[in-house]
Simulated scan of single mutants.
Amino acid sequence: MKFSYIGALCVFMALIAAAQCLFTCNECWVIGGTECCNVKNTTCPLPGCMTMSEYCVVEDKHFRSIRKTCGNELCNLCLTVTTGLDFNVRVSTQCGKGDGSNANLNFTESCNNLTTNGLKCPRCYNGTSAEGCADNGTVACVGKEMQCADYAGVVQYSDGSVNYISYKGCIVTGGCLVGFLGLPGTKEIKRKTFNCTAATSTILNLPKLLNL
Results as ranks from 00 to 15, higher is better:
G182H: 01
Y167L: 10
N195T: 13
L181Y: 09
V155R: 03
T202V: 12
L206Q: 10
A103P: 01
N195C: 08
D135Y: 09
G118S: 09
V178A: 13
S161E: 13
T128D: 10
N106M: 08
N136Y: 14
S158H: 11
C111F: 00
Q147P: 02
L181A: 14
V155D: 01
K192F: 15
C121R: 03
K192H: 15
G153F: 00
G175T: 05
A152H: 05
G153I: 07
E109I: 13
T193C: 09
C196D: 07
N106S: 10
N195K: 14
G160W: 11
T197H: 05
R191C: 13
T173H: 07
V172C: 08
K190Y: 14
D159T: 04
K190A: 15
N113F: 14
Y125N: 08
S201L: 10
A149V: 14
N163I: 11
T197C: 09
S201W: 08
K187A: 14
C148G: 04
S110W: 03
K168V: 07
N117W: 01
S101K: 01
Y164H: 13
V162C: 06
Y151T: 02
T138S: 13
Y164G: 10
I165Y: 02
F194C: 04
G132S: 12
L204R: 11
I165P: 00
L105G: 00
T108R: 02
T197I: 10
D150V: 00
V162M: 04
K190N: 13
Q147A: 13
L114S: 03
S158C: 03
E188M: 15
V162S: 12
N104Y: 12
I165L: 12
G118C: 07
T108F: 02
V139I: 14
A134F: 15
V178R: 06
A134T: 15
P184W: 08
A198L: 15
T186R: 02
G175L: 04
D135P: 11
C196I: 06
G169A: 13
V139D: 00
